[in-house]
């Protein structure tokens, strides 16, 4: 994935070159990448890291001890954990490719939370055991619903070349 040199890649480089010299100097290697896991992004990285550990360890315990009780719910927890892991790694690595991966994953996460939330309210028999995303993540103070929204907002802001830096973070030379 990192070695990808498709049309996307060339487009990114072209976009980077269109930036002002100052901005381009800081982000030559990976356009927009250095900022992805910094500032507010680092707080997101922290939350996603915690949720990766929580969701993955929870689903591994459930799958290994009582898989037949609620296979769908446990597999869903596992899938959620994998999505969180992908976003964590993407935020940590930075770069335009990672930003796109994170955008797709955050969108999938948001859709998943909403779909599972509606399903659990409409037909609770589909999920006999709780998952991270049951009832819109109420067991996790709605963070599963809030995180992807924050993530998408941040990824959108970090993607903009100039205005992406948080207030007062980078005094322009």
């Amino acid at each position: 994935m990192a070695e990808d040199s498709t049309a996307d890649g060339t487009e990114d480089t072209a976009m980077a070159q269109r930036q002002t010299p100052d901005a381009a100097a800081g982000t030559t290697a990976e356009p927009g990448g250095t900022r992805l896991g910094q500032g507010p992004g680092r707080l997101l990285l922290w939350f996603y890291g915690v949720f990766t550990v929580a969701a993955l360890s929870r689903s591994i315990v459930q799958i290994s001890t009582k898989f037949s009780d609620a296979p769908l719910a446990y597999l869903l927890s596992l899938a959620a954990g994998v999505v969180y892991a992908v976003i964590t790694v993407a935020l940590w690595r930075g770069g335009e490719q990672a930003r796109k991966v994170a955008l797709v994953s955050c969108s999938a996460e948001l859709l998943g939370v909403i779909a599972v939330g509606v399903l659990t309210l409409a037909d609770s028999s589909a999920f006999p055991d709780q998952t991270v995303w049951s009832d819109f993540g109420v067991g996790y103070v709605f963070l599963p619903l809030i995180l992807p929204v924050m993530g998408l907002l941040w990824l959108r802001r970090a993607g903009r070349p100039e205005s992406g830096t948080p207030e007062g973070a980078a005094p322009r030379p």
Binding site: Q38, G39, P40, L45, W46, F47
Partner: peptide, 25 residues
């Protein structure tokens, strides 16, 4: 492990967001 992990992340993030990470932790 929670607070040590938050501490290391706030060492890397020397801004208000580093404090927010520890608060969240």
């Amino acid at each position: 492990c929670t607070i040590p992990a938050a501490a290391f992340m706030s060492l890397a993030e020397r801004s208000r967001w580093g404090s927010a990470i520890v608060a969240a932790g």
